[in-house]
Design a protein around this nucleic acid. Structure first.
Lengths: 245, 245
DNA sequence: CTTATCTAGTTCTATATAGAACCTAAGGAG
DNA sequence: CTCCTTAGGTTCTATATAGAACTAGATAAG
């Protein structure tokens, strides 16, 4: 931590280089969510730059959603509360309960050869094995969502140790605590298809009825894919809400 | 423009008050998209504050997407290129042409009593009149999208002066230039329903086939609703893509 | 033990200043 | 006329500094 711990592309501005260094430390897991960072004055002294410059670096990371600053308390690595956001956009149409996270039931979990499409999305070599789960999400004993979930083997062997009953309705906190994988963002692709096969059967839906299908690729802080899943539910039960700017 | 032109909630920080003043000037239309703002030094002199403080105010407005700063050139009111973003999320599944804006054909335009649901969304008094359009969007002579569009009468009388053939595929630029209404953001609600009635007929779709239905409320810089529309298209042709963070 | 006060540490606001990097337009050289 | 240089204006980076606002913990008073 001397004056020139800020190498990386000497032509980039100082605050940018400091932001990159801190971002990398967080991505590599050297600073975990909830950790407190050194104060802006300490950072300035350690790296031999002006306090205002560290402020600018920290502000950038706050803007990226990686850090959180609390006046009088300090600067902290942000804890991404993410599992809830699925239902921020994709919610049940029943107006009764808002933002209810349905119960979930894992129907199967096994190691299988990945379909080439999934392997590609997860950036794994073609034909390698992965973890596959089938999960049903239900509300008041009515099956609403059929999910097929794929995980790469390498970081998730610890996940296989857990009993299938110990897994609650939220997967991402488990990925974090058990496997050190933090989901920071995701891409979703929504389409409509006709019910058939296993999903139709498990959802008790007649073949040919419209299904909403959401494919999601969840990625970590470094942008690398962590999990791929495909969720299907009867179209009549769902709505998708979003704000554009 | 003296030292204390920055009234508004005296306890708020200076940069916040300056940002509010500039934001209001833009909302009120005193500064139009594309206009150039005074330089940060001039602003500082005019309002009697330090240049660094004006920088912070301008940075906030840049972050909000209202301003745009170009090194060496100046600070400009951002031109919201918005019509394109419909198809950034909601795109045709044909992989051939990316980001093609389909041709459009306005089938009808008239003044009608607003349905109570629409009036409520547009924050108009119940039972008042509005402008209603039916538009078909097509690609290579195939009808893809059926749109029902509602506008409040008051700001859009100038829009009625235009010949129905003069209206191109992009409405929002016309709202801007002809009626002074700038669309800055929108909320969309996506559901799936079964085809019936006029939409089914105009789209040449059999009754009962699944339709994707997107209801959109477009709002101005001040957050007030400007336009409400409902777009429907055959479910098999569309996909909706989004990034969550 | 409870409550109030003080203190050290933190972020936030605001000022002042200097030079670098970049753009535009005007003027001069060929 | 064309191309190059120059000058002035702009944003961007970086430094330095002072006090306000807020928090948490230690200390003192009751």
């Amino acid at each position: 931590m001397s004056i020139d711990a800020l190498q990386g592309d000497q032509r980039l501005p100082l605050y940018q280089r400091l932001a990159d260094v801190l971002r990398q430390e967080i991505i590599r897991g050297e600073r975990r969510p909830g950790d407190r960072l050194p104060s802006e004055n300490v950072l300035a002294r350690d790296y031999g730059i002006a306090p205002g410059t560290t402020r600018k670096a920290l502000a950038e990371l706050v803007h990226d959603g990686i850090l959180e600053r609390l006046q009088g308390r300090g600067t902290f690595v942000r804890r991404p509360s993410f599992d809830r956001s699925l239902f921020r956009f994709f919610r049940l149409r029943t107006k009764a309960g808002n933002d209810i996270i349905p119960d979930s039931q894992i129907r199967s979990r096994s190691i299988r050869r990945m379909p080439s499409e999934v392997a590609q999305k997860l950036q794994q070599p073609a034909g390698c094995d992965g973890i596959r789960m089938i999960r049903i999400r239900m509300l008041e004993d009515v099956a609403l969502l059929h999910e097929e979930i794929w995980l790469p083997l390498a970081p998730f062997t610890a996940f296989l140790e857990l009993g299938i009953d110990e897994v609650g309705p939220l997967l991402y906190p488990i990925y974090d605590t058990q496997c050190g994988q933090i989901v920071a963002r995701a891409d979703e692709l929504l389409t409509v298809e006709q019910a058939k096969g296993q999903p139709a059967r498990l959802l008790h839906i007649g073949a040919g009825a419209p299904l909403v299908c959401i494919e999601r690729l969840a990625c970590g802080l470094d942008g690398m894919p962590i999990e791929w899943r495909r969720s299907r539910g009867a179209a009549e039960h769902f709505q998708y809400q979003i704000e554009i700017r």
